[in-house]
Simulated assay, not measured.
Amino acid sequence: MSVIEEFIRVEKDGTISFGNFLTDSKKKVVDFEVNGDLYYVKTYSEITRLEKNSKLLLEAVPGAAIHNLYMDGKKVSFSIEGKDDIHVIMELEPNTEYRVIVDDFIVGSVCGNLSGKVNFSVDVKNGEKNVVLEKAN
């Protein structure tokens, strides 16, 4: 895979891909519409951030390329690539525990705080990683 030259796009399967960690200056796309929702993306080498209807969905530090972001009520999945270890912040459901799975290996669990934010890191030094967060039952 590679960076998203247009900074955000909808894939044929309806998922969203975004981010360009190779650009040195901040790039933004405002009011990118998908199914009536408005997305905002800011991306460059230091950060990649995606918001939906002014609510944080995902933030990656340093910047990253996120491919095929899919979210439903029980699961989030995407692939991520970048230059270094990437710290990911997502806003999901408050006080809810999620299993974090990277390349089919359960690496642990995270719990959404009062605002629903979860934090975890992904080592992408050896290439793109597939990430899944599943609600723990």
Rank of each mutant, 00 (worst) to 15 (best):
Y70C: 03
E5R: 08
L56A: 07
N35H: 09
G63C: 07
K125N: 14
G116W: 04
P62C: 02
D31F: 07
K129A: 13
A65E: 01
S121Y: 10
I66G: 03
G73C: 01
K52W: 12
V118L: 00
G116M: 11
E97V: 12
L69E: 06
G14N: 09
K12A: 15
I66S: 02
C111G: 05
G14C: 10
E5H: 04
N137Q: 08
Y39R: 04
K42R: 10
T43S: 13
S121A: 11
F32Y: 15
L114C: 03
D123C: 04
V122E: 00
D85L: 07
H87L: 04
G112F: 03
D123R: 02
V124M: 02
Y40I: 05
T96W: 06
M90N: 07
S121K: 13
L114N: 14
I4A: 09
L133K: 00
N35F: 05
Y70L: 05
T43H: 01
A136H: 10
N35M: 06
K129P: 08
V34T: 12
D84K: 02
V107M: 07
I16C: 12
M90Q: 05
Y44W: 11
K42Q: 12
N68P: 01
F105L: 11
L114H: 13
I80C: 04
V76R: 00
F105C: 06
D103G: 03
G19H: 00
N130V: 12
I16K: 05
D37M: 06
I89F: 09
V102E: 02
S79G: 07
D103A: 05
F32C: 03
V30E: 15
V124D: 01
A65N: 02
D37T: 12
V131K: 00
G116N: 07
F120I: 13
F32H: 08
V10F: 08
A65T: 06
Y39A: 07
E33G: 10
G116V: 06
E81S: 08
T43C: 04
L38C: 12
S25E: 09
V61R: 11
R99C: 00
V30W: 10
Y70W: 12
S17F: 05
T15V: 06
A64F: 07
K135C: 07
L58V: 15
K125A: 10
R49A: 08
S77P: 01
R49N: 14
K52Y: 13
A60T: 09
S79I: 01
I8N: 04
L50V: 11
L38S: 15
K74G: 13
K117Q: 14
N113E: 15
V118I: 13
I89D: 10
I86Q: 00
V132T: 15
L56V: 15
D13W: 09
I101G: 10
I8Q: 01
K55D: 15
S17Y: 06
F21K: 01
I80S: 04
V10N: 08
T23L: 03
L38N: 15
D123F: 07
K42Y: 09
L58H: 03
K83W: 12
R49G: 09
V61H: 08
V10G: 11
E93Y: 12
K74T: 15
S17E: 03
S45N: 13
F120Y: 11
N20C: 06
A65L: 00
P62F: 02
F120E: 04
S115V: 15
V100R: 00
N20V: 05
V61M: 05
I106G: 02
K26T: 15
T96G: 04
L92H: 03
G14S: 07
E11T: 14
K12Y: 14
